[in-house]
Simulated assay, not measured.
Amino acid sequence: MIGNENISFDMLNVFIKVSETKSINQSSKVLLLTQPAISKKNSSIRKLRGGTTV
């Protein structure tokens, strides 16, 4: 946790799926979310972690 922000279950689920599929496009199809929604959640995780994700 950084400040008042937490990584939500939804954000974590997106991160895991993108890591597994190595594709935002494929992850969006599996999770039934738009590609921009996946990118936004992934970006939020990156910011909370202070930079990059795996």
Rank of each mutant, 00 (worst) to 15 (best):
S39D: 12
T21C: 07
L31M: 10
R46K: 14
N25S: 12
S19L: 12
I45A: 04
A37L: 11
I7S: 00
T52M: 02
L31N: 10
L32W: 09
Q26N: 06
F9E: 09
E20F: 11
T53H: 06
T53E: 11
V18D: 00
L33N: 07
M1H: 11
S23G: 04
E5Y: 02
S27L: 09
F15E: 09
V54E: 03
A37F: 04
P36E: 00
T52I: 13
F9T: 07
E5W: 01
F15G: 08
N42E: 14
I38L: 00
M1T: 15
I2C: 07
L32P: 02
N4G: 07
S8V: 09
R49M: 13
K41R: 13
N42Y: 14
R49I: 09
L12H: 04
K29Y: 06
F15I: 12
L12W: 06
E20S: 05
V54G: 14
G3R: 03
K22V: 04
T53R: 07
K29P: 01
V14Y: 00
M11N: 03
I16W: 03
K29A: 12
V18M: 02
Q26R: 10
K22S: 11
E5V: 15
R46T: 01
V54H: 10
K40H: 10
N13P: 09
N25M: 08
D10N: 15
I2S: 05
G51E: 02
K22D: 05
F9P: 01
I38S: 07
L48M: 14
S39Q: 15
V14K: 01
T21L: 10
F9D: 13
M1V: 12
E5D: 10
R46N: 06
E20R: 04
F15L: 14
K47W: 04
F15D: 04
V18L: 00
N42A: 15
T34H: 14
S43Q: 15
G3K: 07
Q35I: 10
R49G: 10
S19G: 13
S44R: 15
T53F: 09
V14N: 06
T53D: 00
S39N: 08
S43E: 13
L48D: 00
